[in-house]
């Protein structure tokens, strides 16, 4: 690979484009495809164009073998994001964990005494009301959303917006009883069974978590399972 191609690849990734580096392993050449368009290198066969699209959908790099020899499709999907509503104690543990796992984390909380740089070093903070913040941040299918405030005034408006998005993981902290009440309120806002079923509540896997850090682990684990095994039924 030459430096010019590497720079183009890095620019496309920085711009959060769906990017695929097509490596012809036997002839030592590369083509770069950004948002489905050829940016550099030799044009791709129609079959290869289809294979690139499929690899993006599955978010999985893989090697193909065909007439052109071995071809490695290296997929760079837009980065994972985690939007946390509530700059609370659990968020202080969850934000750095998610960051280590490769998520770009934003913590949303209009309460100024909670969302401070001192409590959340190196984390993006958003002080808007959660519904405005969510509309602005526009969760996509690479985004997870976790509400942690326990306060319907803050959690509900966020969920109302998020349930209309493609977010791959939506979780709301709170007991089973709290969650029942939350569900009733969301129904009043017009959300049906299918939308409500997308919410993981209580948030996280049932691993007996007690401390904020342990609860963050359980949420991180559930989020990971939904990301990596989307077809597996929810449990726990």
């Amino acid at each position: 690979m030459n430096l010019q191609l590497l720079r183009q690849l890095n620019e496309a990734r920085a711009a959060k484009r769906a990017t695929c580096l097509v490596r012809f392993l036997d002839r030592h050449e590369e083509s770069l495809v950004v948002d489905g368009k050829l940016v550099d290198g030799a044009p791709l066969s129609p079959a290869l164009v289809d294979a690139v699209a499929a690899a993006h959908r599955e978010d999985r790099s893989r090697t193909l073998e065909g007439e052109e020899g071995r071809i490695f499709l290296q997929i760079f999907n837009p980065p994972l994001r985690l939007l946390i509503v509530g700059a609370v104690h659990i968020a202080q543990a969850l934000a750095p964990m998610a960051s280590l796992a490769g998520y770009a984390v934003t913590v949303i909380d209009p309460r100024r005494s909670f969302a401070t740089d001192a409590r959340f070093p190196d984390v993006a903070l958003n002080g808007e009301w959660p519904d405005d913040a969510m509309s602005e941040l526009a969760p996509d299918r690479r985004t997870a959303v976790v509400t942690l405030t326990h306060d319907p005034k803050l959690d509900d408006p966020a969920l109302d917006v998020v349930l209309r998005s493609e977010a791959f993981y939506i979780a709301a902290l709170g007991s089973t009883r709290t969650h029942r009440q939350r569900v009733a309120r969301l129904r009043e806002l017009g959300h049906g069974d299918e939308a409500i079923a997308r919410i993981h509540g209580p948030a996280g896997l049932d691993i007996g978590a007690v401390s904020p850090a342990e609860i963050a682990v359980s949420v991180m684990a559930e989020m990971t399972r939904v990301l990596r095994r989307p077809d597996e039924p929810a449990a726990g």
Binding site: L6, P79, A104
Partner: peptide
């Protein structure tokens, strides 16, 4: 970000 993708930026 500490994920996989840093490596290519570091390479450049």
């Amino acid at each position: 970000m500490t994920g996989e993708h840093d490596i290519l930026a570091q390479a450049a």
